[in-house]
Every structure is written in structure tokens, then in C-alpha cells.
Nucleic acid binder design. Structure first.
Length: 276
DNA sequence: CCGGTCACCTGAGTGC
DNA sequence: TGCACTCAGGTGACCG
């Protein structure tokens, strides 16, 4: 479910709420959740104070005072929920962080695809070095972006979804950015003129910034820390609009499958151009 | 390198 | 109401 704007929203909320709090204990209810070992994680976080929360692609990075850190990937349905002790606990809660001040952070994940990694300093640096997480869109600029994509022969949509090329975009925002840029999702990246790639980059940034401002898109499961969804779904121009008229040209929006992902595009605005 | 398929899970929606 | 079936925002393994 969560792509860059949703993860960024969660990270900002977490930063505001849990930085400075000291962990009393962590209860892991689902063993496979912690890929680096639940016992190791719970013992290393006990008594630690949250120092900072950041984002690396779609990963949440929670830094603790002792140098340990917790990496979280929410995959499709992961959520963090802020609550008080003794509140009714929702279904599908797989981890609970108890803080010394009696507050509680729940980790909930309906489909159980999400995961935790518990690292010390050195392990974290290794992960930073080795994980195939490409640059963040906000770390790039139009020139570098067009150079990276223009050197690729693959189809533009799967490339934009490839986190090793650039991290953060997912299915919704890729469809939105390609529509805004009038690029057909199957276009080979190296056939897209440089100027158009630069425009694509600008659209990606505009869309991501607006989505972050609106706290992301809620189409199914995504909610922020307080259980409230985002509202960028109301600004979607192409995602989920199949069968309706394109707001630009009036053609009927289509849905196909590209790289195994549901893909929404306007055949009028986004002509498939394979010429240079 | 590139693309296709499946697998990981549960729930929501659809059609009969 | 119930049942069978398809699909979902993310990735990673495996195969040609």
C-alpha cells in the first residue's frame, strides 16, 4: 500500500511523536516479522531512547540512542498506530512497542508481508551499502534523472517501479506521473526525448510534493499514525479511472497489465511512441 | 539485461 | 446469504 508519500507521512508523524521516548519493552507476536531475529531485536531495543526517524526509499529507519536501529518495510498493508495502554487492540497487530511514559505504538499488518530488520551500527552501514535502494527522487535533479533513465532500454513503467533505479515510487504514483507527462507506460526509456524525461522528473516531484502535503493516498488500507487516511486519492487523475473519460482529451481511460501491475493510462494523451 | 510468472497473505468486491 | 473467484498500493525468487 504505502509508497513514498505515505511512508514519508508516517515517518514525519513518528518523528514528531516518538523521538525522545524510551522503550520499556517490545512485544513481537509474529516471529517471521523480524527477519534478523525477534529475540535479538527485543533485547537490543529494551531501555533505548528513540533518537530519530528517517526514510530510505520505502523503508522506515528508526534510530535508537545506543546505536541500534530498526528498519521497517510496510509492504502492502503495514501500519503504525499510536495508542494508549489498555485501548482495545485491533486485529492483525504483530508488534507492540511499550514506552516508559505508558504510551504504546502498534504495528499492524493484515497481509503479513511487511518486515522488521534489527541492526547495530555496523550492520546498518552494511545494509545502507548493500541494499539495492536507488537514489530518492528528491536527491536527484532533472539532468541526472534523464541521464539515468535515458541510458535504459527497458519500458519506462517497470523502470520507475524498480527501486534499485530510483526508490520511492509505486504503482499509483508511476501511473499518475506518466499520465501528467503524456508518456505511454510501455515506451522504452531510451526512446523518450531528453526534454520529455526532464518533464517527467518535474511531474514526479510535483506529484510527490502535493501527495505528501495531503498525507498520501488512501484507497484501501493506508492510514497515518492517528488512524486517519490521506486525501491525495481525490487528486488522482488516471489511477483507478479506467472506463471514465480522460479529463484532458475525452478519450476513455484504459487499464492493462504492465510488468504484472494494473496500469491506467489514456490512449489519447499517452500515445505509444517508439520512434527516437 | 529483460520480461513473465508465481509466491508471500488476508479481505473486499463481484457475479451467480 | 453463501460460495467461488479475482484482485490489491510491494518485492523477491525462479525461469526462459
Amino acid at each position: 500500500m504505502p509508497e513514498l508519500p505515505e511512508v514519508e507521512t508516517i515517518v514525519r508523524d513518528l518523528r514528531e511523536i516518538i523521538v525522545g521516548l524510551r522503550v520499556e519493552k517490545v512485544d513481537i507476536k509474529l516471529d517471521k516479522l523480524v527477519r534478523t531475529g525477534p529475540r535479538k531485536l527485543t533485547s537490543s531495543l529494551k531501555g533505548e531512547t528513540v533518537q530519530d526517524v528517517n526514510r530510505r526509499g520505502k523503508h522506515i529507519v528508526i534510530q535508537f540512542s545506543g546505536g541500534n536501529c530498526l528498519i521497517v518495510h510496510l509492504k502492502m498493508t503495514g501500519q503504525f498506530l499510536w495508542g494508549a495502554r489498555n485501548d482495545d487492540e485491533p486485529d492483525h497487530v504483530h508488534a507492540v512497542f511499550y514506552f516508559m511514559n505508558k504510551s504504546v505504538l502498534l504495528y499492524r499488518d493484515i497481509r503479513k508481508f511487511g518486515y522488521f530488520l534489527g541492526f547495530n551500527d555496523a550492520e546498518y552501514l552494511d545494509w545502507r551499502r548493500n541494499a539495492a535502494i536507488g537514489p530518492d527522487p528528491f536527491e536527484l535533479n532533472a539532468v541526472v534523472f534523464s541521464k539515468i533513465l535515458g541510458a535504459r532500454k527497458g519500458r519506462i513503467k517497470p523502470l520507475l517501479l524498480n527501486q534499485a533505479v530510483m526508490s520511492g515510487l509505486g504503482n499509483i504514483y508511476v501511473d499518475e506521473a506518466l499520465f501528467a507527462s503524456k508518456i505511454h507506460p510501455l515506451t522504452p526509456a531510451n526512446r523518450i526525448p531528453e526534454a520529455r524525461l526532464k518533464t517527467l522528473y518535474e511531474h514526479i516531484i510535483d506529484i510527490l510534493e502535493e501527495a505528501i502535503e495531503l498525507r498520501g493516498s488512501t484507497t484501501a488500507n493506508y492510514v497515518g499514525l492517528r488512524g486517519v487516511g490521506g486525501s491525495f486519492q481525490n487528486r488522482h487523475k488516471i489511477y483507478g479511472k479506467d472506463g471514465t473519460r480522460c479529463r484532458i482529451c475525452g478519450e476513455t481511460v484504459e487499464r492493462s497489465v504492465v510488468g504484472g501491475r494494473g496500469t491506467h493510462f489514456c490512449p489519447g494523451c499517452q500515445a505509444l511512441c517508439t520512434e527516437t
